[in-house]
């Protein structure tokens, strides 16, 4: 990550402040998804494992509704050529990734906060484990979402393709993160969660390395 990538992040951040391409759809999705879950549960008591699963379902679909914008908006507005002409592909990917990482963290902190407030069964007993798995899960989600966004931005049916292509790629991450959330809710220690943590860590490293290697080919038509 260098100053050029940071400058691209700043450009995207200020562009987002003015256009609200991603933030509005993300906020609406989070509110609607959590409301639907609350209405459907009604007065039922739901289990810890179910709340952990639903927590990541909301995160997954919220990510699908907003994270593709970093590349799709550039393609739709025709500004991607200008980016081609000012920076190397690795700079572009780093800048876009930084924007998505920050957006994912903001989005998921709000989701976690709302969850803790609204769902009685969502009690985090081992906060350190939850924080580590949350950080690793969010990084993996941001990296995978960014490279998939770059791929689908060149395609025709962007809206449909994004969740379809993301689902199999994000499945190992989501499943493991659900398990880690459950362990944190049950108050398990790091020793009990070491395999899951290793899986998420390895996933992050692999997806990050693969994304940087792949992006050159994706970016250049």
């Amino acid at each position: 990550m260098n100053t050029k990538a940071y400058a691209l992040y700043k450009k995207d951040f200020n562009s987002e402040l003015r256009t609200r391409y991603a933030v509005n759809s993300l906020a609406m999705f989070i509110i609607v998804a959590i409301s639907v879950i609350l209405f459907s549960i009604g007065n039922e008591k739901i289990s810890q494992s179910l709340t952990g699963g639903l927590f990541w379902v909301v995160i997954f679909f919220s990510a699908m509704s907003g994270l593709s914008r970093v590349f799709v908006s550039e393609e739709e507005r025709g500004t991607s050529l200008a980016l081609h002409l000012v920076a190397a592909p690795s700079t572009i990917f780093s800048g876009k990734l930084l924007f998505n990482v920050i957006l994912v963290f903001c989005m998921n902190i709000i989701i976690a906060f709302l969850y803790s407030m609204l769902f009685e069964a969502f009690i985090i007993r081992n906060f350190s484990l939850f924080a580590v798995s949350f950080i690793l899960g969010n990084i993996g989600l941001a990296v995978a979402s960014t490279i998939i966004a770059a791929i689908i931005s060149k395609a025709g049916a962007k809206g449909t393709l994004y969740p379809v292509l993301s689902f199999p790629i994000l499945l190992p991450l989501i499943l493991t993160s659900v398990q880690l959330t459950l362990l944190a809710n049950q108050g398990a220690g790091f020793g009990d969660a070491k395999f899951e943590l290793a899986i998420v860590f390895c996933y992050d490293v692999i997806i990050l390395t693969g994304s940087y290697m792949l992006f050159d080919f994706v970016w250049k038509d």
Partner: peptide
């Protein structure tokens, strides 16, 4: 340096 009709700059800036 590149100029073309299909080059688009950021309209929000």
């Amino acid at each position: 340096g590149f100029v073309s009709p299909y080059l688009v700059l950021y309209e929000e800036f």
